[in-house]
């Protein structure tokens, strides 16, 4: 099982979106870890893991996500996940994964959050 990822940077929204497809397991986790590190290094405030096409996740994958979340939080940034499939959500639930991590059920929720964040930033700049 393979994992394919692609990252898009939205400088306007200060966000990096990583779309994941396939399986995040022991085998694919190290590759994902380095590509995610690359995305984090871009410096966007928000890193969104779009899991719409992620079918499988094991603890090795969760480990990478936990690590990234930890690093981002330490820098005052944040990691969130969106579009989890049922089985992925179940794994997150079993591991009571990160109560402070934002989870979006779909893109609409994510967009609403981003809009709210942006208007807050703009409001603060005025």
């Amino acid at each position: 099982m393979e994992l394919t990822t692609s990252a898009t940077i939205d400088a306007d929204k200060d966000m990096a979106r990583v779309t994941m497809a396939g399986a995040l397991n022991t085998e694919t986790a190290p590759g994902f870890e380095s590509s995610l590190e690359g995305v984090i290094a871009e410096g966007q405030h928000l890193v969104v893991l779009d899991m719409a096409d992620l079918d499988y996740i094991s603890s090795a994958g969760l480990r990478v996500i936990f690590k990234a979340a930890k690093q981002l939080k330490a820098e005052g940034r944040s990691l969130c996940v969106a579009n989890r499939q049922a089985q992925i959500a179940k794994v997150f639930e079993i591991l009571q994964a990160l109560p402070d991590m934002r989870v979006f059920a779909n893109d609409r929720e994510l967009d609403a959050y981003l809009d709210a964040m942006q208007s807050r930033v703009r409001g603060g700049a005025d």
Partner: peptide, 8 residues
């Protein structure tokens, strides 16, 4: 536990 204290 929250991210900062989570074990990897």
């Amino acid at each position: 536990v929250p991210s900062e204290r989570a074990e990897i």
